[in-house]
């Protein structure tokens, strides 16, 4: 705690790096997960192979996955972000497709029968109806991403993990380890709470 109070600038900078990494990851992950979810929603038999592959990917230890990616993307934030995107796919694709499935066919048929085109059905009916489930997926993904981003420091990606790894390297710097853990934990809690509030708001309307 005292370390944070004594070095507010550094901690804030690392927090920002951490948040940027997480945000970039989530943005890319959602853009990728949407078409995949739509694909398995429409081509049912693809669900099992696609979800199977994504689940297997999820079981690979994050450290190992990032190491495997370094030769392709370099020793920097890019490898870490790619790894985080891959991890969050299983969560996002699952949630979006469950969200789409949760909409009663009668409702979509009514939308079609009233003369909404594909675009209008998507924005006016499907998106608002699956929003709470999607936000739940986004929240889980954000927490997972924040956790994995910590390891990023080992690969030159910066972020709050820097404090942890420094603390471990410089034997006895428990203050750094505590500060890093506290900051990561608070960040995760904060993001989780914010997205949960959004989710509830979406559920209410």
């Amino acid at each position: 705690m005292s370390y944070i109070l004594n070095n507010p600038g550094l901690v804030w900078q690392l927090t920002q790096e951490h948040m940027v990494m997480t945000a970039v990851t989530l943005a890319i992950a959602v853009v990728l997960a949407l078409p995949v979810a739509l694909l398995i929603h429409h081509v049912r038999w693809l669900t099992v192979p696609v979800m199977g592959t994504l689940s297997i990917l999820y079981t690979v230890p994050s450290l190992a996955l990032i190491i495997l990616l370094v030769p392709f993307f370099g020793l920097n934030a890019r490898s870490v972000i790619v790894a985080m995107v891959l991890y969050t796919q299983v969560i996002l694709v699952r949630h979006i497709s469950v969200g789409l499935d949760s909409i009663q066919p009668a409702i979509l048929e009514a939308a079609r029968g009233m003369g909404m085109n594909l675009w209008q059905r998507w924005w006016q009916v499907q998106v608002p109806l699956m929003l709470p489930i999607f936000l739940a997926g986004l929240r889980l993904s954000a927490v997972v991403a924040i956790a994995i981003a910590t390891i990023g420091a080992k690969f030159g990606a910066g972020g709050l993990g820097t404090l942890l790894f420094d603390g471990i390297a410089q034997a006895g710097r428990y203050d750094k380890i505590w500060a890093g853990s506290l900051a990561v934990g608070s960040l995760a809690l904060l993001v989780n709470t914010a997205l949960l509030a959004l989710e509830w708001a979406a559920r209410r309307s």
């Binding site: 409702i107 939308a111 009916v125």
Partner: peptide
């Protein structure tokens, strides 16, 4: 339609 199909 049956069950009205109203947008919830």
């Amino acid at each position: 339609i049956q069950q009205s199909g109203l947008f919830p």
